[in-house]
Design a protein around this nucleic acid. Structure first.
Lengths: 335, 335
DNA sequence: CTGATTGCCGTAAACGTTTACAGTTCGCCG
DNA sequence: CGGCGAACTGTAAACGTTTACGGCAATCAG
């Protein structure tokens, strides 16, 4: 744990100035034998450049931060999994923030950007973009990419998903299978995905000319246990022939309850999840699920950010990722 | 994206020296009205201290790195999920490295520690601790905690799991249920967990006075598809009455194959996974699984590292986390 | 009223780099 | 062989902090 050598140490060893050392190490034109002397000294001493000092001088940390609600959530795992290699390939490190979906924590991440520990930020705000978010975003000292929707005119790149189309896909699929009484288990309405999916659901019903029946809708949280509770509440008062769940965890919870109630999936009730995570194929019956392109959103966000860091793009850009429907046993019989 | 104010800006605004500004901001004893002037100027200008400059001076980055093979793997997710809050509470940021299990990448992470972008490192080496690892570890410029076993005498803290005990737990359980022909689907033998579990399996058989039958053992990789292939190969030549899988993903693959073959779980073949991840409860039948305490290992590793950073402990310490067995439907009939 | 003590404050150096600028060396031409 | 230009090198400043140290004013004792 001894203090490592610095360019000063090397300069002394090689009998040259620190400027020459720096030049050699950065590959700037230098006389042949100076290069040799410096390289020899550097090798011998096991020199590794100090990233902090370099950052101070260059104003570049080669770090990018990613902030989301909870790395336990498979959608965020999918994002991280795509973001990481993109950054790594470009020589950036990834700093991970888990906000727990707490609004203050989210704002704090934004504020902390001012400490300039990272060159840019990818953030997926669970609680939506508030007035305060906007203020901080416009004043942000580094480029920010938001995963999820952003109000018109915000000065940031934005990678969004078309959850409306996703829900429409799911409902269309169920409708095609002859289901007409399609329930909906949602997450909290004061979260971005919750609100978006609620709107998308009524929308999609409209498009299919199906009536909106409030007794078919139940709100819980985006977790398995809460999903199960919501399913229980819904089943106590109605008996739909299909259930759309706002994510795969909720769907797993619903599956637990349907099993308890000895309801067959998909014969009695067809089940559709969202996010198309690994859990959808682990479940039995395997879950039909709406893929909202988490992985792709992560990758695109990272690419947008790097592009902006390297090329300093002017205009905020919006990328929309198309949803997909993975049809599996929970709506179509045999696996 | 304008250049933010520095203590120099504030000093000018408040009409004091930068030293006073620094003192006020760090809460060192200062005259009342100097404090007021500085605070006013800082507020007005929206000052945020520059973390990089601070780090350069203090030799502390308040960052900790965590390196593992693949953030897609649920065991690592579990670790990150525990590590993150511990670090955050102590005011540290988390830098994430995904090495893809590549040996050179792992070594690179170790070498890069010399750049001093982080105050410490938690690493979970998939490929084991080689001679080169050891050299780098002894020369490491910052404290390192290794999750997984480490050779005697390595100068690092170490959080290990007792996989031997874990496998014994599983086999004992199966033996108690009357199973006598217990197959084993392992991951690559040149990985740490693969090697450890192979040894543990033969060991546990011994303890139960069961013979070792090589035709009951098959090696694949730690993923679902490879697990399925391995299961297929094994079933083509033998018909065990129980299968132990080296992780839950392999167990899911095996489950796929057993279903294809119309073998009932657990009636015909009992199935046990390892790591006790979320997947184990998502599957159907739910999977009995050996918990190797990933979450706890992550938390303990973070705690050890922070303790060392704050208190500079002398001796390398070893923490062993006890395995647990979560008994579920895949060995004990009804869910 | 003088001298010592206390408590703040400002100057400047330092952390490890990069880089502008001025100085040196060298080769080459006339 | 003198002089010029090209090519390289060294000095020093800068990035934004923290902090040792000496100076200064106010306070207090004698």
């Amino acid at each position: 744990m001894a203090q490592g050598p610095t360019i000063t140490t090397i300069a002394a060893h090689a009998g040259v100035s620190i400027a020459s050392v720096s030049r050699v190490l950065n590959g700037l034109p230098t006389r042949e034998d100076t290069v040799r002397k410096v390289m020899a000294a550097a090798d011998e001493l096991g020199y590794v450049p100090n990233a902090v000092a370099r950052s101070l001088k260059s104003n570049r940390t080669y770090q990018v931060a990613f902030a989301m609600a909870d790395i336990g959530n498979p959608t965020y795992v999918a994002m991280v999994r795509e973001i990481q290699p993109v950054l790594k390939a470009a020589g950036y490190r990834l700093v991970l923030h888990s906000t727990g979906g707490d609004l203050d924590d989210e704002l704090d991440v934004l504020r902390r950007l001012g400490e300039r520990y990272a060159d840019g930020l990818i953030i997926s705000p669970l609680r939506g973009i508030t007035r305060k978010h906007l203020d901080l975003l416009t004043a942000a000292p580094a480029p920010v990419v938001v995963i999820g929707s952003v109000p018109e005119g915000a000065p940031v790149d934005n990678v969004r998903t078309d959850s409306r189309a996703g829900v429409r896909l799911a409902l269309k699929h169920l409708h095609d299978l002859g289901r007409r009484s399609i329930g909906f288990l949602n997450g909290p309405l004061d979260t971005v995905p919750g609100a978006a999916r609620a709107a998308a659901y009524t929308d999609a019903l409209d498009a299919l000319a199906l009536p909106y029946d409030p007794s078919l809708v139940e709100v819980g949280d985006f977790y398995r246990a809460e999903g199960a509770q919501a399913a229980r509440r819904l089943l106590e008062r109605s008996r739909p022939d299909a259930l759309l769940c706002a994510n795969d965890l909720i769907a797993l919870g619903a599956l637990d309850v349907l099993r308890e109630e000895r309801l067959r999936v998909p014969e009695d009730i067809a089940l559709v999840g969202m996010d198309d995570t690994e859990l959808a194929t682990a479940a039995w019956p395997t879950l039909t699920s709406v893929g909202l392109g988490s992985a792709e959103r992560g990758r695109r966000a990272a690419e947008l950010l790097l592009d902006r860091l390297d090329n300093g793009v002017a205009e905020p850009r919006i990328v929309t990722v198309e949803p997909t429907l993975a049809v599996r046993a929970s709506t179509e019989g045999a696996p």
